[in-house]
């Protein structure tokens, strides 16, 4: 029981990732595939941010800081959560929005050409 509760963030991310993965490979509607891709991406973001947490830690901003130098030894590392996953995911979120935009643009073009966004219909019209 301790094993399951101590790692619950991993179970949540695996469940979300598999929901998105199933939507990507099993659904035949192209818009639903993109929704699945977004769920998959959110799962990865959740995974990265959750491995950066520390119990009792606060947000990664130096407390009581003006624009003056602080001795590096006086900062308690365990007091602040890990900033690196936040940095990586910050750029990943915005790039994900751009990727969604380009994918929706391609779907609009497909809809104009074939008048449908269902994969089966498109394959039938192609053959």
């Amino acid at each position: 029981m301790e094993f399951f509760l101590g790692k619950f963030n991993y179970w949540v991310y695996i469940a979300m990732m598999m929901i998105g993965f199933y939507a990507m490979i099993a659904k035949h509607n192209l818009v639903k595939k993109i929704i699945g891709m977004n769920i998959f991406q959110t799962a990865i973001i959740l995974f990265y941010v959750s491995i950066g947490t520390k119990k009792g830690g606060t947000i990664p901003i130096l407390e009581g800081a003006g624009h003056h130098a602080v001795a590096p030894e006086s900062i308690n590392v365990a007091h602040y959560i890990n900033p690196l996953p936040h940095v990586l995911m910050l750029t990943a979120i915005v790039v994900g929005v751009s990727v969604t935009g380009v994918a929706l643009a391609l779907i609009i073009l497909i809809y104009k050409r074939y008048n449908t966004v269902e994969e089966d219909e498109i394959l039938r019209q192609l053959s």
């Binding site: 990664p60 901003i61 130096l62 800081a65 624009h67 130098a69 602080v70 590096p72 030894e73 900062i75 590392v77 602040y80 900033p83 936040h86 940095v87 910050l90």
Partner: peptide
């Protein structure tokens, strides 16, 4: 976490 205020003058580590 320890050196970013010294190096870059930005309290926000991110």
């Amino acid at each position: 976490i320890q050196h970013s205020q010294d190096d870059t003058d930005a309290p926000n580590f991110v």
